[in-house]
Design a protein around this nucleic acid. Structure first.
Lengths: 168, 168
DNA sequence: TATGGGGCTGTTATGATGTAACATCTGGCG
DNA sequence: CGCCAGATGTTACATCATAACAGCCCCATA
């Protein structure tokens, strides 16, 4: 897997990420799900947007907008920053990707379909970023906000450190 | 207080923030605490760094680095971006301020002295940002990381929504 | 057919945030 | 004095993001 991953993707985004699974399946699943979701909602997952989604999904590392732009430029000469940001904005508004605020980078959403803010474990060694969905954490967030009389809308949780493999 | 706050501070940072308390006390306390902490640690809270800390503390709204720069320039003509970023880096490394990642802005730490990552309630209406320290939330974060075999180093929690006053 | 409106993309320019790299200053210490 | 470390000055640049307007395409409707 690691070899194929490296072969099909020369971008630095995946250079270090731990990939012990068949990542092509991740991509295929994500794209198929995205198509279903957009069709059901009556919004357009255009070829451009799908291509951007595919690029974001090339690894489990958050990808910067300009990295997406570089990659997109190979097949789409006209690509400019607004091209990419507009696609990223669309994908975020449909809950298909997340922005990792602490890295100014974007990551495919593994829970696409359900609207949620996302909770992330970011390894600063290999870059791999795992999205988790912890009900207790969710509850704790809601309780903390409630206690302060605060109406929570977006709840961002980004934990950086070392993933299990890098810590070992 | 609102009147004095407006008078002593023309920066947009405080334009909307709810300030029902004597904010001058906040600033004075924060600066005094910072001096104590730095003295105890044998690190230099230079006049420049103290001035930057004071500017960050002018309100309970996170302040952008270039806003700090504008303000600092009034008294310190030589100020440039690196001047500000170096001071901010120092203040963060000593735990005297926090960076709010979702806003790319900086906020005075109300728990200075104890090393912690900070949990924030960010009102997108008035901009006021409250730092909370919720033990249950802290536990939930640790548990979530542990469950994934992840070694947590920095735990970022930023909840945006409406503060009690703006929601009312 | 025509027409006009909405959604998507192209294009140019610029704004906002952050850092690299090297120079200079200052105070303490052998 | 001579040197070093830490702080600041200074120039240039890298990175991240958006404003504003132009053009295109589909298609609903007259």
């Amino acid at each position: 897997m690691a070899a194929r991953d490296a072969a099909q993707n020369a971008s630095p985004a995946t250079a270090q990420a731990h990939q012990s699974h068949d990542h092509r399946e991740c991509i295929d699943d994500a794209l198929a799900r995205a198509r279903d979701i957009c069709a059901a909602r009556g919004v357009q997952l255009t070829p451009l947007r799908e291509k951007v989604l595919q690029i974001v999904w090339r690894s489990h590392k958050p990808v910067g907008a300009y990295e997406v732009l570089d990659e997109l430029s190979r097949s789409h000469k006209a690509a400019r920053p607004p091209t990419v940001y507009r696609a990223l904005d669309f994908l975020m508004s449909e809950g298909l990707i997340h922005k990792i605020e602490s890295l100014n980078a974007y990551l495919g959403c593994t829970e696409a379909g359900a609207t949620h803010s996302g909770q992330f474990l970011i390894c600063h060694q290999c870059g791999a970023t795992e999205e988790i969905s912890d009900p207790k954490l969710e509850t704790a967030l809601d309780q903390a906000a409630k206690r302060a009389g605060f109406v929570a809308e977006r709840k961002m949780v980004e934990i950086s450190g070392l993933c299990a493999r890098c810590a070992a």
